[in-house]
Design a protein around this nucleic acid. Structure first.
Lengths: 220, 220
DNA sequence: GATTATTTTTAGACCAGTCTAATTTATGAT
DNA sequence: ATCATAAATTAGACTGGTCTAAAAATAATC
């Protein structure tokens, strides 16, 4: 018997750990969930009693093996729903996150397996994130890197976004950038770490560091 | 801001009122929701404060206009999801109820409008129940009646089930009866109110009163 | 009309989850 | 090593939802 609140904490800890490689601090979790540190302390205690997380105070919270398994399946559900919403209900990629946050808590492995099958086992969601299979396996993203790290004159294509906030996604839409778009880095400016790229449709597009850090690309 | 619990109470009151034509009693609501009368008293008070129900103690609880509107939209969501699960994810009609009970609480009119459109605005769910549109309108079931009331030698077809419990639906499956099946009432036995019917595939099928009361049919 | 049975409500407790405010604990700087 | 700062925890209160047990109100029966 797991509650939505618990699942949201597991997911937060999972994604914070993924980003930092370390355990998630109480404050980081609180910030991520827009809640208060005291609430986090409480919940972490409960999750620990259920064997889902380990906690070393002042060091961090990390998921146990079962915790990781649970979190991965929630991520799977989230990404399956995002894919369904975009591919079948014609939502835009910047509209689906909040809805998927609701749908991911639907308690039925069977349903999500069927949804997966219905969509022909998609490997990536609309933001380029890999969709775990029912055993938690997903394709590894080896070779993917932020655009900010790409050397001059390298041809790459966009495979994902690190930030999938509506604001960022709308910005990309406005620049004509989407998954699959091919880019070449023309110039890199040390001054502010901005890069100038060219696509098939547009050349001399200047992207600031915030954008290039959040665009995941792969060499071609 | 409505909770799932509130929505479940509204739905219960809605369906009890639909069946009985009267207000729903505290005990009836409690039985329907497998909860205790004291909990119902509590919740009814809250729903009343929100303007969703009227309550005359020892007489019954009824939905206000806004309460009816809210309940109808929940029913809409429930039936849309049931239809989706059966028509697109290949669930059987006896498997979808509990899942739809979860999905109906997803808070997004937009999503359900899109789902409705995706399925080409279905008028009935897999159990033959009419699906309300976004304004709460649904096709009226005039002409539909329980099989138990059909006169001898009348040709009818099955348009719905009053009881949509898995057990009943599986029984129908076992008898080869489904929505659309054409039946003729051959004989009616006063002894136990059972009826003998014939379909295209099977003749002399004896149905007891419990079954015939729960099978909704329409003359052809 | 009085008594019994049933229905409904109240009172008080509990759990999950959240908050604020106060306190404790560790870290980093001097 | 001390002290300020930041991080984490505790204490206590609140909300929504539930329960049991007891009391109150109504309905049914004689």
């Amino acid at each position: 018997m797991r509650t939505s609140a618990e699942e949201n904490y597991l997911k937060a800890i999972f994604s914070l750990a993924e980003q930092s490689g370390k355990g998630a601090s109480t404050t980081a979790i609180a910030a991520h969930l827009r809640t208060k540190a005291s609430s986090v302390t409480d919940m972490v205690k409960r999750l620990n009693e259920k064997g889902l997380v380990d906690h070393r105070p002042y060091y961090g919270v990390s998921l146990t093996d079962t915790g990781t398994q649970v979190a991965t399946l929630i991520v799977r559900k989230h990404r399956l729903w995002e894919t369904f919403l975009v591919n079948h209900l014609n939502y835009r990629w910047d509209e689906v996150h909040d809805l998927a946050e609701q749908l991911e808590h639907i308690d039925s492995d069977e349903l999500h397996d069927r949804l997966d099958k219905f969509m022909d086992h998609p490997k990536f969601d609309p933001h380029g994130d890999p969709i775990p299979d029912r055993e938690g396996r997903m394709v590894d993203m080896a070779g993917a890197q932020p655009l900010s790290e790409v050397a001059k004159d390298t041809l790459v294509h966009i495979v994902g976004v690190k930030d999938s906030s509506p604001a960022f996604l709308k910005l990309l839409d406005g620049l004509g950038l989407k998954l699959g778009t091919q880019l070449t880095v023309n110039r890199r400016f040390e001054y502010d770490n901005s890069v100038e790229v060219s696509s098939r449709f547009r050349s001399g597009l200047l992207l600031n560091e915030q954008v290039s850090l959040n665009l995941t690309v792969k060499a071609l």
